[in-house]
């Protein structure tokens, strides 16, 4: 299972590189969305490996509320873009 975790960290690096490299805001948002999901799945994996129920609960809560922030952010960016252009 340690190998699985290392592979997960490797996969997490890809969106991080993308977020640092690309200047387009939407490409960055995509990368952030990907990072958010991947980290919370990693939290779940680690929690269940250590048999720690509280940590698993935190992971599930992050999974179920974390993306809401990104959605609000996407809406705000869209509004701001509209205002700047129009």
């Amino acid at each position: 299972m340690t190998l699985v975790l290392i592979a997960m960290i490797g996969a997490l690096l890809i969106p991080m590189i993308e977020a640092l490299r690309d200047d387009d805001i939407w490409q960055r948002m995509l990368a952030f969305a990907s990072i958010a999901t991947k980290t919370s799945v990693m939290i779940l994996v680690i929690a269940l490996l250590q048999d720690d129920r509280m940590m698993a609960l935190v992971g599930v809560i992050i999974l179920s509320v974390g993306n809401a922030a990104l959605m609000l952010l996407a809406q705000i960016i869209r509004r701001v873009n509209d205002v700047m252009e129009g």
């Binding site: 948002m29 999901t37 959605m71």
Partner: peptide, 28 residues
Amino acid sequence: QEWPLLVLALISLAIWNTVLGYVLAYCS
């Protein structure tokens, strides 16, 4: 034995990621 938590994780993953996909597509 941890099935309730994991099932909730499955459901929220499916719903939130899909809806986030839609919102990002709509906004971009």
